[in-house]
């Protein structure tokens, strides 16, 4: 285990060392201490490395992550795992706004609650939130899966495309063009896998969720839907 004191050595040194791991496979575990809410911790990593951040992070922790497993032993600021490509990000606490925004792959697990706009414009990422998600979550979500074990705030899935949303609790309101859809066996299978990989299989069963997705009425501009655009 390589320990990195962020307070003493600084962000540039950390990210530069992590970027230097690209192509390497021999160094597998890192620990970052004294994160003190710094921004862009472990942004742009592209290596199969296991990074544990001991504390809370600021904006854009694990931004654009590829391959790495990044564990935040605290809460995460806005835009955690934004545009993630692959790998896994696991947050023990809560996540602020835009968690997993525009993510294109990989798995984001939030063991607490996620604030507004969780999964905004998601493009293939899988997100599992053990608690609740805030308003406008999955806004314009394009693809991937968003799983919420708790409740969803207002305007869930507004203007979404092909992303799948699974919510176990209540949904305050659905956004434009977002509708409840039938849970078919293939969706149960997706959920089963995500709950297990999202370390939530002990907390919930797939049958307890409802599925939401796009009614696809906004896909072709139609004047009769103008008030929804």
């Amino acid at each position: 285990m390589q320990t990195f004191d962020l307070g003493a050595e600084g962000l540039r040194a950390l990210n530069s060392a992590l970027h230097g791991l690209k192509g390497q496979t021999n160094m597998t575990a890192w620990e970052v201490v004294n994160p003190k809410g710094a921004h862009a911790i472990a942004a742009g990593v592209d290596a199969p490395v296991d990074i544990t951040v001991r504390g809370s992070t600021g904006y854009y922790c694990a931004g654009m992550n590829k391959q790495a497993t990044i564990r935040i032993k605290g809460s995460a600021g806005p835009g955690v795992a934004e545009n993630m490509m692959s790998g896994t990000v696991i947050i023990d606490g809560d996540a602020s706004q835009y968690a997993g925004a525009t993510g294109r792959g990989g798995l984001l697990v939030i063991k607490g609650n996620a604030s507004s706009r969780c999964g905004i414009s998601m493009k293939g990422i899988d997100i599992v939130v053990h608690g609740n998600i805030g308003h406008m979550s999955a806004f314009m979500a394009q693809s991937g899966n968003l799983v919420c074990l708790g409740d969803a705030g207002e305007a869930l899935g507004d203007s979404l495309y092909e992303a799948r949303l699974f919510v176990r609790g209540s949904v305050k309101s659905l956004g434009a063009d977002c509708v409840e859809k039938e849970m078919r066996p293939e969706h149960i299978a997706i959920l089963e896998d995500l709950l297990s990989r999202g370390e939530a299989d002990a907390k919930a069963r797939p049958e307890e969720f409802r599925r939401y997705g796009s009614a696809r009425t906004l896909y072709s501009f139609n004047i009769d839907n103008a008030s929804s655009y």
């Binding site: 862009a40 904006y59 854009y60 654009m64 835009g79 835009y98 706009r117």
Partner: peptide, 23 residues
């Protein structure tokens, strides 16, 4: 933008892009 609003956020976003591309 989906993950920032206003000039203070933009400053952090630019810093993140610089970090990802090693300045």
């Amino acid at each position: 933008h989906p993950d920032w609003t206003g000039p203070d956020d933009l400053e952090i976003k630019i810093m993140e892009l610089r970090e990802i591309t090693d300045w």
